[in-house]
């Protein structure tokens, strides 16, 4: 996010100044996309214009109400269940609060669910494995997505629209069906294997489906647009004059890319990577359809806690633990990113 205000000729006033401490990925994406405001030289973004018009409170309030209703409230319900205990009944867990004899309100919090997660290596291993899969997928998506975004950003305006449409087009088909289609492509009797066999390159089908390979193909394929779009937004707004200046000063193209383009596209890289990484950690459908017998991811563990064991409290504890392990590093990361950006601006 350091790039948002660093370019020469861009006033500091161009950056949204709200919620400095809670700068989120959404904001990074916003910053990446909203820089045309800065380039116009007005020094005001659309956000600030809205604020001036409708008042700070309303503009900030709407997303907060949204988060409250659709994030915090469900989170609190899950948190509540994670402290309950299993029982056979409707609902299948015990209440936390109970009036007992003599007018006492009894609060029972079962921490056992969380301790249980540490007891059994299954959960830790599944979590680490999910992180690994998500990390590798994000890197692959970045390696594929960056050149794509770069090419789109440098294409002529007519082609740019076509390319962007091609990136977005798959969303018009259901996610599930697109993942399912990969089964037809990768299976023993599928497109790739049949093509290779008919070309005489192989005798017996390659095991592609239900392997780590097919898992990565599925995740990278599904989340690639989330990498490409923020990257495109940053790269497209980048001033081509900067590269020309670097070339004029005798910088080779590759060096210019490393020292100018790459740092300036950092907000896009961070936003894209987060948008791929976070959903990939909890991914359930893709490992279920394309993964192999031994694919262990936290989403699948959560499923079996909830459905096979029908132990809602432990399932909730897994969900809460996942959220904590995922959110805390990201918040810390964002905090330091922000600090770093502030320091860069001060100097």
């Amino acid at each position: 996010m350091s790039g948002a205000g660093e370019g020469p000729g861009h006033g500091l006033g161009g950056r949204p100044t709200t919620g400095a401490r809670t700068r989120s990925i959404a904001e990074a994406a916003w910053a990446a996309a909203g820089r045309d405001g800065e380039r116009n030289g007005h020094g005001r973004t659309r956000l600030q214009w809205l604020m001036a018009r409708f008042g700070r409170g309303t503009v900030i309030g709407i997303p907060y109400i949204w988060l409250l209703l659709f994030f915090l409230l469900p989170f609190l319900i899950v948190l509540k269940i994670s402290f309950a205990e299993f029982r056979i009944g409707l609902p299948p867990y015990t209440p936390l609060l109970e009036w007992i004899e003599g007018g006492y309100l009894q609060i029972k919090l079962a921490f056992g669910n969380f301790l249980f997660l540490l007891d059994d290596p299954l959960y830790v291993v599944a979590y680490l494995n999910s992180l690994k899969v998500a990390l590798v997928s994000t890197l692959i998506a970045l390696l594929i997505g960056y050149p794509m975004a770069y090419a789109i950003a440098r294409a002529s305006p007519t082609w740019r629209a076509v390319y962007l449409l091609l990136v977005i087009l798959p969303f018009w088909t259901s996610f599930l069906i697109r993942v399912y289609a990969w089964i037809g492509i990768l299976k023993n009797n599928g497109l790739i294997n049949n093509a290779l066999i008919s070309l005489g390159l192989i005798d017996s089908p390659l095991p592609l489906l239900n392997t780590e390979v097919s898992l990565y193909i599925g995740i990278v394929y599904s989340y690639l647009p989330f990498m490409v779009l923020p990257l495109y937004a940053t790269l497209e707004k980048m001033d081509i004059a900067l590269i020309e200046a670097a070339a004029d000063l005798g910088c080779r193209p590759f060096k210019a890319f490393l020292t100018v383009t790459l740092p300036l596209s950092m907000p896009g890289i961070v936003a894209g990577s987060m948008l791929v990484f976070i959903p990939a950690v909890g991914e359930f459908v893709i490992p279920d359809l394309l993964g192999g017998a031994g694919t262990l991811m936290i989403g699948k563990v959560l499923w079996s806690e909830f459905f096979n064991n029908r132990d809602w409290p432990v399932a909730s504890a897994v969900a809460i633990a996942m959220l904590i392990f995922l959110v805390i590093p990201i918040v810390v990361f964002q905090y330091y990113q922000h600090k770093h950006a502030e320091r860069a601006e001060e100097s």
Binding site: L122, A126, A293, G294, L296, V301, S304, N308, N309
Partner: peptide, 16 residues
């Protein structure tokens, strides 16, 4: 018993 079964099943599926 269900928990034992599910746990054994996870082990069978994933080796862990």
């Amino acid at each position: 018993v269900d928990r034992l079964r599910t746990r054994l099943w996870s082990k069978f599926k994933t080796g862990i």
